Simulated scan of single mutants.
Amino acid sequence: MSAHAHAFAPPAAGPDGLTDLVGLSLAELTEAVLALGEPRFRATQLWHWIYHRGATDFAAMTTLSKGFRAKLAERFLVGRPQVSTHQLSSDGTRKWLLRFADGNEAECVFIPEEDRGTLCVSSQVGCTLTCRFCHTGTQRLVRNLSPAEIVGQILLARDTLGEWPSPKEGRLLTNIVMMGMGEPLYNYENVAAALRLVTDPNGISLSKRRITLSTAGVVPAMRRCGEELGVNLAVSLHATNDAVRDEIVPLNRKYPIAELLQACRDYPGVHNARRITFEYVMLKDVNDSDAEAHALADLLADIPAKINLIPFNPWPGSPYLCSEPERIERFSDILFERGFSAPVRRPRGRDIQAACGQLKSASERKRKSEREAAPAA
């Protein structure tokens, strides 16, 4: 386990000292079941209730004996994060501010589209990185999220969408992107454990091809991610030269563009049918010129790549402005002419502060003003 996974560890037990079964692997769940004096197959039944049927109450797990259910209720729980705020946008986007057992908060966003429904999941409270255009980057890293807290976001979204038992067809939540608060590759072990639960065929059973992990470029962990998890990779690139990227994505000073792109070329399983997505936020007069569009095409010429152009979503105190719509379209046209798929991402949920980090900051400001307004004891 990496130093990052050990640091900022989440609480080990839930309320009343009960252990949360969410986040345990099947092997760990089996161990817990055997310790209660129950046969091994009970773990598979329990797994099915938690991840296929979405049950949170042991009393509802009717294929388990009453005695076993009573023993489970004495020692364990099947948890969900507490919802601090749940907002529904006029465009159907949902955003949750979730509070965990220790009072820390992170965000989760569901974005419905015609052909898919994507859940954007957080991996840390705050963020390890300080990308200057990202609102989460202004929030200090508090700690990593545990497998239970990562998977809990997905379970809670499915609770809200009414997707239990786990449907094979016609799902509303079809895709997961690890693009919420935090750098997933600086919490690799916990993220990996969570994604293994999500892709297990006997549980939530999402295809690895429907899961995308986004990184700002933690080069040493990228190959491991491809080899062990086999999920799609998205890279937050946002610049075509080290001078600009050093400024807006400070991690670039440790892993410059040349190293990052070599890691992309070496990413296991990447080919023309399974491309790497490069995220490129459009910042006015920073990275949006015709010359930079051509430079981006040159950089990615030998990498199976798709480019997502993201209109910058301004937040209070941001040092940047969004590029003009005509400039973004021109940038996209150049990339299409150069042979790349370069769609412009349609901004979603602006009326509910759906840009990552905005809702949490609003919550923190509210709590701070309430504390300051409270009379002294």
Results as ranks from 00 to 15, higher is better:
residue 83 V to G: 09
residue 116 R to E: 14
residue 58 F to L: 01
residue 46 L to G: 06
residue 320 Y to I: 04
residue 49 W to M: 05
residue 230 G to Q: 04
residue 202 N to P: 01
residue 65 S to E: 09
residue 319 P to Y: 05
residue 187 N to D: 02
residue 125 V to Q: 12
residue 337 E to I: 01
residue 303 I to H: 12
residue 255 Y to G: 08
residue 316 P to C: 00
residue 78 V to Q: 08
residue 33 V to Y: 10
residue 70 A to H: 12
residue 271 H to Q: 10
residue 139 Q to F: 01
residue 105 E to G: 11
residue 34 L to H: 09
residue 318 S to Q: 02
residue 135 H to E: 15
residue 118 T to N: 13
residue 335 L to K: 08
residue 327 R to A: 12
residue 155 L to C: 11
residue 311 P to E: 05
residue 75 R to Y: 04
residue 300 L to K: 08
residue 86 H to M: 04
residue 134 C to H: 08
residue 354 A to M: 06
residue 265 R to N: 10
residue 224 R to C: 11
residue 195 L to E: 09
residue 12 A to Y: 00
residue 141 L to E: 10
residue 161 L to H: 12
residue 337 E to W: 03
residue 98 L to P: 01
residue 36 L to A: 11
residue 150 I to W: 06
residue 266 D to M: 03
residue 244 V to I: 15
residue 308 N to Q: 10
residue 114 E to K: 15
residue 38 E to M: 09
residue 238 H to F: 07
residue 60 A to K: 15
residue 63 T to P: 00
residue 278 F to P: 06
residue 36 L to G: 13
residue 245 R to W: 04
residue 151 V to T: 03
residue 292 E to R: 14
residue 76 F to C: 01
residue 47 W to K: 00
residue 141 L to N: 09
residue 155 L to D: 12
residue 184 P to C: 02
residue 278 F to S: 11
residue 23 G to Q: 10
residue 42 R to S: 06
residue 110 F to N: 04
residue 113 E to I: 02
residue 41 F to E: 13
residue 91 D to Y: 05
residue 208 K to N: 12
residue 58 F to Y: 03
residue 295 A to I: 01
residue 77 L to E: 14
residue 270 V to E: 10
residue 122 S to W: 05
residue 259 E to W: 00
residue 91 D to F: 03
residue 354 A to D: 12
residue 190 N to L: 01
residue 367 R to C: 09
residue 130 T to S: 14
residue 178 M to A: 08
residue 104 N to E: 15
residue 339 G to S: 12
residue 205 S to W: 11
